[in-house]
């Protein structure tokens, strides 16, 4: 158990996160003040939520590059709805956002499931289509804070038990993902389809349906994040969260989720997202230009994927050695 824990990907990542925190703290002690850490977590919440959805998709050997566009489109739709009809009860907005996001995810899912188009092509296509649709809906205009109802923008920022509601959304989704991934047939199916599709079929799991479910899940979470994002920043326009899909994929890859499918954990995805979140928040503190952000997440993806490949290779050797010792 202890050995398993020390060799686990999550532990290494956790150590790396601690190391960065220590490093930043030597320069700027205020960084690890509880209030600041809550801010950092809150700021990373959208990334965590999206990374958990992306994880399900990557587990089934797919990839969803349309999450950021989905987020932006859903955000624009609910913001438009709110500005046109401010009396709509606020409870409906997140529910609506989840449904719209899920519907957009279902489009990806159907194309992958029924037409067997490679997921990268499907989501590269829907990514631009969704962004284009935002332009058509909004006519290129911004929806600003004064056009949104006070309740609409207040919800993600409201403080509940010391944490903003945005963070609570992330925490609830973290727990729910853990339950779904580790305790339900659907969670097992994600791993089965990614780990060995042929075996999955023989055990009665439909590959297409499972991938469809993963895309709907990813879409639903992207939709929810769309509302949270637009409400938190109190603005909706065509380019919000532009390029965010890469950060989401980066969080997953850094979290040890194998792009080849079937390998990964909820803890890994969360830590991967938190790692990127801390780096992002620490850069300005240690006086590094935010222009470094893109290159750093790019390098992190490459290093992480190289590390994944390397560790899976050594794992193979260790198993052989164990077998040799056993005989």
């Amino acid at each position: 158990m202890v050995k398993q824990l020390t060799s686990a990907r999550e532990t290494i990542l956790f150590a790396a996160i601690l190391a960065i925190l220590v490093l930043v703290t030597t320069r700027f002690p205020g960084f690890i003040a509880p209030g600041n850490l809550i801010d950092v977590f809150n700021d990373t919440s959208p990334l965590i939520i999206l990374a958990l959805g992306q994880m399900a998709v990557i587990l089934t050997r797919c990839i969803d590059l349309s999450v950021a566009a989905n987020l932006a489109l859903t955000g624009m739709i609910v913001a438009t709805l709110n500005s046109v009809n401010p009396d709509l009860p606020i409870v409906f907005i997140p529910i609506l956002a989840v449904l719209i996001g899920a519907a957009l995810g279902a489009i990806n899912g159907i194309l992958v499931w029924k037409l067997e188009i490679p997921p990268i092509v499907v989501t590269l296509g829907t990514m631009t289509i969704f962004r284009g649709i935002i332009f058509v809906i909004s006519d290129g205009n911004w929806i600003n804070a004064h056009e949104m109802s006070p309740a609409f923008t207040a919800l993600p920022r409201a403080i509940f038990l010391g944490l903003p509601v945005l963070s609570w959304f992330a925490i609830v989704i973290m727990v729910a993902s853990y339950v779904v991934i580790t305790r339900t047939p659907l969670g097992r199916a994600f791993f089965a389809v990614g780990g060995n599709p042929h075996a999955a079929v023989y055990t009665g799991i439909s590959i297409g349906k499972t991938q469809f479910a993963a895309f709907v899940l990813s879409g639903a979470l992207a939709g929810l994040t769309g509302y949270l994002w637009v409400a938190r920043y109190a603005v909706a326009y065509v380019d919000i969260a532009g390029g965010f899909e890469l950060e989401v994929v980066a969080a997953c890859v850094i979290g040890g989720i194998s792009i080849a499918g079937g390998v990964g954990s909820v803890g890994g995805a969360i830590l991967g997202a938190i790692f990127l979140g801390i780096v992002k928040n620490a850069l300005p503190v240690v006086n590094i230009s935010p222009f470094w952000q893109l290159a750093i997440s790019g390098s992190a993806i490459i290093i992480a994927v190289a590390f994944n490949a390397q560790s899976s290779r050594t794992k193979g050797r260790v198993i052989l050695k164990k077998a040799e010792h056993a005989t």
Binding site: L246, V253, I259, F291, A295, G298, I301, V305
Partner: peptide, 14 residues
Amino acid sequence: IVVTIGTMSLFRGI
């Protein structure tokens, strides 16, 4: 796919 998604950020990042 992953490598070039990574270098896509890296090259433009530089």
